[in-house]
């Protein structure tokens, strides 16, 4: 694990806590960036590496839980909440919203580090998945319109003959398109293409059975 391939963001209005967490994380070899408020964090430019957000519930501008809801829409680092006086409803709400942990001050070194590491690992995984998906999307973008018509029919399991009839083209032409799709999407097999289509959340428009019965 490289020092520079991950980072921890700390948001707490108490400078003492900021300093202490920064120091503690540093002693664990983790780089931390601290903020005094949610606004500062939102406005800041953040490096594109695996990260974790250590968030105080009581903030001067908005409540930490509200911030969690606010950023839930987009991609954001997993959150570890810290609070002066934790109450059960708040912690339940935070965990439900996807927080990694909810720590009550004062917390132990172990608890914090466990949570932070888990969060970073989670983020790293999420980031890798997002990267894969992005690659697939880029490949899909290179398909011609006809190839984009062919791909859902193929992954739906239609025979070449059926797919060609569906599109009103010859089977030979369809086979050419199919081969291009397989090449462009870097699919090793039809099964691989089906998995790729799922990742892309491509809708399955035809089933072989219904398609078959209509032809027969």
């Amino acid at each position: 694990m490289n020092v520079h391939d991950h980072i921890v963001f700390v948001i707490d209005d108490d400078v003492r806590i900021q300093e202490a967490l920064e120091e503690l994380l540093a002693s664990h070899g983790i780089h931390a960036v601290v903020f005094g408020s949610a606004g500062e964090y939102i406005d800041a430019e953040k490096p594109d590496v695996a990260s974790c957000l250590v968030l105080d519930v009581e903030l001067p501008d908005i409540n930490g839980l509200d911030l969690q809801r606010q950023i839930a829409e987009g991609d954001h680092p997993p959150i570890v909440f810290i609070t002066g006086h934790g109450d059960i409803p708040s912690s339940v709400s935070a965990i439900k919203q996807g927080a990694v942990d909810f720590l009550t001050k004062p917390f132990s070194d172990g608890d914090l580090m466990t949570a932070v590491r888990a969060a970073i690992a989670q983020d790293r995984q999420q980031r890798s998945q997002r990267a894969d998906l992005e690659l697939l999307r880029q490949r899909y973008a290179r398909l011609t319109p006809r190839e984009r018509e062919v791909m859902p029919l193929v992954v739906s399991g239609l025979l070449n003959k059926q797919a060609a009839a569906e599109l009103g083209i010859s089977e030979v032409t369809l086979q050419i398109h199919r081969r291009n799709v397989m090449q462009k999407m870097v699919a090793a097999s039809l099964a691989d293409l089906v998995r790729i289509a799922e990742r892309l959340e491509m809708p399955v428009t035809h089933s072989r059975r219904t398609g078959g019965s209509s032809v027969e």
């Binding site: 108490d14 003492r16 806590i17 202490a20 002066g84 006086h85 917390f107 132990s108």
Partner: peptide, 28 residues
Amino acid sequence: SASIAHEVNQPLAAVVANSHACQRWLNA
């Protein structure tokens, strides 16, 4: 009481965190 607890908790939390950090620096 709650207010006092918060007031006291903050420095305590910092003390705890710093103690752990200190320990790690010494053990390094």
